[in-house]
Design a protein around this nucleic acid. Structure first.
Length: 239
DNA sequence: AATTACGTCAACCGCCACCAC
DNA sequence: AGTGGTGGCGGTTGACGTAAT
C-alpha cells in the first residue's frame, strides 16, 4: 500500500517530453502542479516547469553563445551579479540555467588561467599555451570544438542543437535515434494535424500569452476530443 | 586501445516570494 | 493578519562525451 505516488527523477524520456509539451500547450505554462497531475507524468510540477523552461520551450536558442551574447552576459553579470534569470531575460532564447552554466565554465577557466599564470610565472611556455587572454572567447571556442550538441545527443533522445548553431547537424541527421527539437515540433504539428484538426488554432509557436488566460477555458468539444487523444495513457479526463 | 582528465549541461535541491483563502 | 500551496530562482551535483595521454 503506497500512500503517495513515487515520483520519477532523472533524465526525461522523449515520450515524457511530448506529453509535457502537449499539456503545456493545452493549459499554458503557469500551472505546473496542475499540469504535472493531469498529464499523468510522474514528475513534480517543479520538474515539469524546469524541463519546459530549460529545454522544451519553443523560443529556445541552442548551441554555443555568440560573441555578442558572451559579451552581454559579462556586462550584465558585472551589473547585476548572479541574477541569472534577470540576465536571461535580456538575452532572448537563453535560459538562466544555460547562462549560469556558461558563467561557471567561464569563471573556472579564468580562475585556472590565473592560477597557472601565478604558478608558472617564470614559465613563458605555459603562458603561451594558456594565454589567449580573453577567457571568454577561449571558453567558447574550446567548447565548440567538441560541440555541445553532439555531446548532448548521446545522453538525450535528440539533439539539443535544433538551430544548428555552430554544431554539426549532419552528424545528428545520420543517427536516426537522434531528434532535433525542430523534428519534435514537426512531429507534434503532424500529430495535431492528423488527429486534432480542430485544435489547429494553437500554433506550435505557442501563441497564447502568459498574460492571456483565455486558454484556461477549454471548449467542451475540445475536451471531448482530448479525452481520447491517443499518445498518452493518462488517467486524466476533463470534467 | 585503454585509461584518465576535463568540459558541458540537464536536472535536483532548498530557499524565498507571492498569492489565494 | 496568518497560513499553506505553488512557482521562481540560484546553487550544486552527477552523468556523459570528448580530448589528451
Amino acid at each position: 500500500m503506497e500512500r503517495e505516488e513515487v515520483m520519477r527523477k532523472g533524465p526525461w524520456t522523449e515520450e515524457e517530453d511530448v506529453q509535457l509539451v502537449f499539456y503545456v500547450k493545452l493549459f499554458g505554462d503557469r500551472r505546473w502542479d496542475f499540469i504535472a497531475k493531469v498529464s499523468g507524468l510522474k514528475r513534480t510540477g517543479k520538474s515539469c516547469r524546469l524541463r519546459w523552461v530549460n529545454y522544451l520551450h519553443p523560443g529556445l536558442k541552442r548551441g554555443k553563445m555568440t560573441p555578442h551574447e558572451e559579451r552581454l552576459v559579462l556586462d550584465l553579470h558585472t551589473k547585476w551579479g548572479n541574477r541569472w534569470s534577470r540576465i536571461a531575460r535580456k538575452i532572448p532564447g537563453r535560459t538562466d540555467n544555460e547562462i549560469k552554466n556558461y558563467w561557471r565554465t567561464h569563471m573556472r577557466k579564468e580562475a585556472q588561467e590565473k592560477k597557472k599564470g601565478n604558478i608558472n610565472i617564470n614559465n613563458p611556455v605555459d603562458h603561451e599555451s594558456s594565454s589567449s587572454s580573453s577567457s571568454i572567447s577561449s571558453s567558447s571556442s574550446s567548447s565548440s570544438s567538441s560541440s555541445s550538441s553532439t555531446a548532448t545527443a548521446g545522453r538525450s533522445f535528440y539533439d539539443t542543437g535544433g538551430n544548428g548553431m555552430g554544431s554539426a547537424p549532419a552528424a545528428a541527421d545520420q543517427v536516426d535515434k537522434v531528434y532535433s527539437m525542430d523534428e519534435i515540433w514537426k512531429d507534434i504539428e503532424l500529430s495535431e494535424a492528423s488527429c486534432c484538426s480542430n485544435f489547429n488554432s494553437y500554433s506550435p509557436v505557442w501563441d497564447f500569452s502568459p498574460h492571456d488566460h483565455s486558454i484556461w477555458s477549454v471548449d467542451a468539444d475540445i475536451t471531448d476530443h482530448y479525452n481520447s487523444f491517443p499518445p498518452f495513457n493518462n488517467t486524466f479526463s476533463f470534467i
